[in-house]
């Protein structure tokens, strides 16, 4: 479970976002460090959606924030449109990263409770004084609100606490789209919504993605949802990449990383039978990122683990067309 490999990266010119060896650590008590993200590389092509899956605590959200430099990663290179974000001045960085917009899981906490919907959506424009004349700005705001499925006339002067979770999430999406981003980073945005609203949101995202030609990083713990919306999927485990695969690979008979298999086995299915956990390691918790296992980080839960896994970190290799797997034992 290394993911330190870069074989899965595409040519530099063809990508919108290119992230190499991203590392994020947080100081913890007693001088120890939380290794949240340890050397992840990936790229996102224009108008492509890359899904990130993994358990809670595997560093998905940290990746999202590190890409935005909120806060900046400890090391690693983030290239957006051939601009290296780490080399920019603070002011230039603020300007450049507007092309990427974030949407978070908690719809209420994402909106300033003291602002009205119209001000929330226009906030970015206000910051950059990109408004032009007020009439055009208001028109565009109303258009975007209607586009994301809100009735602009009703919500215009509302405060976030007067809206439902789904409505708040739509406001967040409209606010992000207002900046005409080229990359939308969605961090578990469906997790706090109920299932019917989830599917509405998925459809909304697909539609806006098509209309605005957006690339997306779609982060979720739910493999089913990620499969539904993504072109490529990155399976993360404890701050590393386990497997990178084209989404079609999930539908064909193929080999997978043992952790991907575990995730696939844990997707709930409606059947008449009682289902027993079939894969070993399913019930175990994530090891502590304070002191991650040596070699392959998944070895403590892996049914295939051997001595080699403890000593040598596997690299991402293309084991099947469109499938990069970091495992010594999958071939």
């Amino acid at each position: 479970m290394a993911g330190t490999g870069k074989t899965h990266l595409r040519e530099a010119g063809s990508t919108l976002l290119r992230v190499e060896d991203l590392q994020v650590e947080f100081p913890a008590k007693g001088g120890r460090r939380v290794h949240a993200v340890s050397g992840i590389s990936f790229d996102v092509a224009p108008a492509e959606t890359v899904g990130f899956v993994g358990e809670s605590g595997c560093g998905k959200s940290t990746v999202a924030r590190a890409v935005m430099h909120l806060p900046a990663p400890n090391s690693g290179v983030v290239n957006l449109d051939d601009t290296e974000l780490g080399s920019l001045s603070a002011k230039k960085l603020r300007e450049t990263r507007v092309a990427m917009q974030l949407i978070f899981q908690d719809p209420m906490a994402s909106l300033n409770p003291r602002r009205k919907v119209k001000d929330l959506v226009q906030e970015g424009v206000e910051i950059w004084h990109r408004g032009g004349d007020r009439r055009a700005l208001e028109e565009r705001t109303r258009e975007l609100l209607d586009d994301v499925g809100l009735d602009s006339a009703t919500v215009w002067n509302r405060y976030p606490h007067e809206l439902s979770g789904g409505q708040c999430q739509r406001v967040s999406i409209a606010r992000a789209l207002m900046m005409r981003p080229s990359l939308l980073i969605c961090d578990e945005i469906l997790a706090s919504l109920d299932v019917s609203v989830q599917s509405q949101m998925l459809n909304l995202l697909k539609r806006t993605r098509a209309e605005h030609g957006l690339a997306m990083m779609f982060i979720s713990h739910d493999l089913g949802v990620v499969k539904n919306i993504s072109d490529r999927i990155l399976v993360m485990y404890l701050g590393k990449v386990a497997e990178v695969l084209e989404v079609e690979a999930l539908d064909r008979e193929t080999v997978h990383h043992p952790y991907t298999q575990l995730l696939l086995a844990s997707v709930p299915r409606v059947t008449g039978e009682r289902i027993k956990p079939s894969v070993a390691g399913a019930a175990q918790d994530l090891p502590s990122p304070l002191n991650p296992p040596s070699g392959c980080r998944f070895r403590t839960r892996c049914p295939l683990a051997t001595d080699r896994c403890a000593q040598q970190e596997p690299q991402l290799e293309e084991k099947r067309p469109g499938q990069f797997i970091a495992c010594h034992h999958v071939s």
Binding site: R94, E95, V98, S110, E123
Partner: peptide
């Protein structure tokens, strides 16, 4: 800690704002 602060920064808000 609330996300709206992070979002504001993503939108380009500086410290003073």
């Amino acid at each position: 800690q609330r996300e709206f602060v992070t979002v504001a920064r993503a939108l380009g808000a500086g410290r003073a704002r």
